[in-house]
Nucleic acid binder design. Structure first.
Lengths: 210, 210
DNA sequence: CGGAATCCTCTTCGATACTG
DNA sequence: CAGTATCGAAGAGGATTCCG
């Protein structure tokens, strides 16, 4: 019953002792899009065993990565510190998109996080703006501020631009199969507000080109 | 015999299908300090089963992360792209240093990589310098150039400063148990070259303060 | 209904032994 | 030196059941 460990005095190995087990980083992914209940987490992970989720959450809480509240589970500051790392892993992982099995499940929350990961801070110096986005029916908003983008579920309180499209269209733009202009022209992206503003906002993100 | 997968159409999950298995990221850590032979890799991983190492290397090579040469295994460009991610994980993992079991093994290569991870690019604009460092008998050098630091095994061809110390001293400085000045005064760091230059060079790194 | 513990089967891990 | 073969132990996955 003793916890498995690499037994190495190395920060990487010690970190992986904490978040390197199977499913752990995917649980953290779930919490990076906001606090969630146990069952919601389980639904979104689609495939994790209930005992495993319980075990992982206990371990994560013991290590101070997550915490339990009345509304469910949420990340601590220490867990929140993993956000840029998860972002980087998402950007790195894009190249393996072709490895996804046909039966692979998909969740809008993952696309939301992928968009957050696609944000390029070096293009957004001094920019402060809010985008209200509906992706295949899933509505969320991206707030760009202080050189960072943060996506959250639900409508924006005060959006500078509002857009509605599908994940397929967004991926098609990323792959270069369709240009942003064409997507807007053909109505594949429905816009409200200044088209120029939206286009500028869109340039802050680098969609995976492969 | 089919490969285990999360079965999710998410870049993070797909990336973890490739590098998320047990030991995989530690193998990559081993290769981030230079190409290595099978047995060298095995020695440095201290604990991995030989069958597991063989399996992982095969999978990594199939996925284009590593490649096999006459001199052993090395990272491809795709694998090399994991360096900043590993750096970030090392910085994040430092907080769990107290979790290391007493019997934990240690390797100078890991300290070398930890130093590389401790480099703060925002402090090094326009800096171009080379440090020759011997850490507990392990000699390597750090090259700072283009806002990045890169540590490699062996002596520097042309060093701006040469220092010799122990990993314990370096950790003590990071923990604040001893100041850099005191360490130099007391001879815990042996210096060659300009002391001022060394001090400035040292400021480019942020050693984990806990 | 949210949050698990239990049971059972299957796969993977880890260590040792062995081979081209 | 660079792996493969083997096998007991541990972990993962899935269904069901239990508790507040």
């Amino acid at each position: 019953m003793t916890k498995r460990s690499y037994g190495q005095d190395c920060a990487l190995a010690l970190g992986l002792d904490v978040i390197g087990e199977r499913w752990t980083l995917l649980i953290i992914r779930g919490l990076l899009t906001g606090p969630k209940r146990y069952s919601t987490l389980q639904d979104q992970l689609s495939g994790i065993g209930t005992n495993l989720l319980a075990t992982r959450l206990r371990e994560l809480t013991e290590h101070g990565i997550t915490r339990k509240t009345d509304e469910g589970y949420e990340l601590t500051e220490c867990g929140e510190a993993l956000r840029p790392i998860v972002h980087a892993l998402i950007r790195w992982g894009h190249q393996f998109r072709n490895l996804a099995p046909d039966a692979a499940v998909s969740r809008p929350e993952w696309d939301m996080l992928a968009l957050e990961a696609a944000f390029r801070p070096e293009r957004a110096e001094g920019v402060e703006t809010t985008l209200d986005l509906t992706l295949s029916g899933y509505r969320f908003h991206a707030v760009v501020r202080d050189g960072a983008a943060r996506c959250s579920q639900g409508a924006a309180a005060d959006a500078d631009a509002t857009a509605s499209t599908t994940t397929e269209t967004l991926q098609a733009i990323g792959d270069g199969r369709i240009s942003l202009s064409d997507a807007i022209e053909s109505g594949k992206i429905e816009l409200q507000g200044s088209r120029r503003a939206f286009r500028q906002l869109f340039q802050l993100f680098e969609l995976p080109s492969d």
